[in-house]
Amino acid sequence: MKNWWKILTVLLLVFTVAAGMLSDVPRLAILNETIRNLYFHVPMWFGMILILLISVVYSIKYLRKPSIESDIIAHEAARVGILFGVLGIVTGMEWAKFTWGEYWSNDPKQNASAIGLLIYFAYLVLRSSFAEQQQRARISAVYNIFAFAALIPLLFILPRLTDSLHPGNGGNPGFNAYDMDSSLRLVFYPAVLGWTLLGIWIVNIKSRLEILRQRLYENA
């Protein structure tokens, strides 16, 4: 069964939406029912990191052994990762408006993720500025590694060094900073896996399409 993970994706996402709305959640002031956004906003960022990691892996693979396939997968994964990041930042703003009071409160986490996304936008701009395929693939692979290396401290280290409204930041967060109880985890982990798999699925389809296009040009 080659496509089992696609079925898993569908099942996980249906579970996420149904259980995410209906399951019991901790009753917390200010957050109220918006705590359910945990199943939809946070997985965007987890998904982005994982998909961008796939992108970096294929970029490294390209640099070790150049092939058009590796370049295409790295590019498509970066694009889907950026899409997830944009969705993450927009859903974060929507959530922030009703819990922090402002769409954008210049929170360290918000600013850092915006800078991280800008670095990745530059990847797309850089890529599109080369006409020659090998040059484009090699230079964007190198830049991609830099972009990922810059993203990790921006998202996971710098916001923790200062005060932040965002959970898990400001001071020493450790792993239990989200105050997640077992009922939250029960839906949260499937949600992360489901959304990430959906992203990987889109990368899979788009890469196959691009590889087909490449073959078609070769044979034309």
């Binding site: 939406v17 149904a18 699925w201 889109i202």
Partner: peptide, 21 residues
């Protein structure tokens, strides 16, 4: 009702992805 609407949207999107696949 909200769950129904969300599942419908999700179902539509997934159906689209499956079709493109």
């Amino acid at each position: 009702i909200v769950v129904t609407v969300l599942l419908t949207v999700l179902g539509g999107l997934l159906f689209y992805v499956i079709t493109v696949d």
